[in-house]
């Protein structure tokens, strides 16, 4: 009797564009599986471009766009990629997208592009992009892959913006170029913290951020 009920083809529910599952795909990378602090992906550029907020935001947008669209493209063509050379195929697609982003930056925001220097090109080898392609887009449908790309890009961007806000406020007393530390504080002997402008500061901030996050969510502790 029971076999009959199994054989009845279940009516396939059409999944909505923003169904619960898809929302989860989009939201999880922001916190519990954040690419930078939990999966240790894409740390390289997360640290180097965060002395000021503006380049950090541009970089975050660039990575989000590249991750989302490379996930989408790979998910669309994944069945026709031979397994042995999939890495090179992925790299070429990512390199193509990064070239587009780089040319757009050079055309419309030359000063930011100069400041980011080689780090735009390094999006190609950003582990987030490759990691998501391997772990997600190679086995999932295009639309969830696209959302996964956006989610991971934003998760990465979130860390970037938080670190850059701390570094810019304490390092040069400004935010997005506007002064935020009032003059009377300087008059009373307050000085900008020079360490914040140096590379090690980014490592300390991310280290402490990881500490805080794992303290809040103990289940993450043994993952690294």
């Amino acid at each position: 009797m029971s076999t009959e009920t199994i054989n009845v083809p279940e009516k396939k529910k059409k999944e909505g564009l923003f169904s619960k599952k898809n929302r989860k795909v989009l939201r999880d990378p922001l916190d519990d599986i954040n690419p930078v602090t939990v999966q240790i992906l894409g740390v390289c550029s997360a640290l180097a471009v965060t002395t000021q907020v503006k380049p950090a935001i541009i970089m975050a947008l660039g990575v989000t766009i590249v991750t989302a669209f490379s996930n989408l493209i790979i998910a669309l063509i994944r069945d026709s990629i031979p397994g042995r050379i999939r890495m090179i195929v992925q790299l070429v697609i990512v390199a193509l997208l990064v070239t587009i982003v780089d040319q757009l930056l050079k055309a419309f925001m030359f000063d930011v592009s100069k400041k980011l220097s080689v780090f735009v090109g390094l999006i190609i080898t950003n582990c987030i992009v490759m990691g998501r392609l391997e772990a997600y887009a190679m086995s999932q449908k295009p639309w969830p892959s696209f959302l996964d790309g956006i989610g991971n890009g934003l998760g990465y961007g979130m860390i970037l913006v938080i670190v850059s806000i701390i570094r810019e406020v304490f390092g040069s007393g400004s935010l997005l170029g506007f002064k935020v530390v009032p003059q009377w504080l300087y008059d009373h002997g307050y000085t900008n913290n020079g360490l914040m402008m140096l590379p090690p500061a980014a490592l300390f901030i991310i280290g402490c951020f990881i500490w805080w996050q794992r303290n809040r969510n103990k289940s993450l502790i043994n993952k690294s």
């Binding site: 240790i40 090690p200 980014a202 490592l203 300390f204 280290g207 990881i210 103990k218 502790i221």
Partner: peptide, 23 residues
């Protein structure tokens, strides 16, 4: 080391300290 800091967290902070030494 405090438990939440073990592994990745402390590696980051040590790298920062090494970076300061290299400065």
């Amino acid at each position: 080391i405090p438990e939440p800091l073990q592994g990745l967290g402390i590696a980051m902070i040590i790298t920062g300290l090494m970076g300061m030494a290299f400065l």
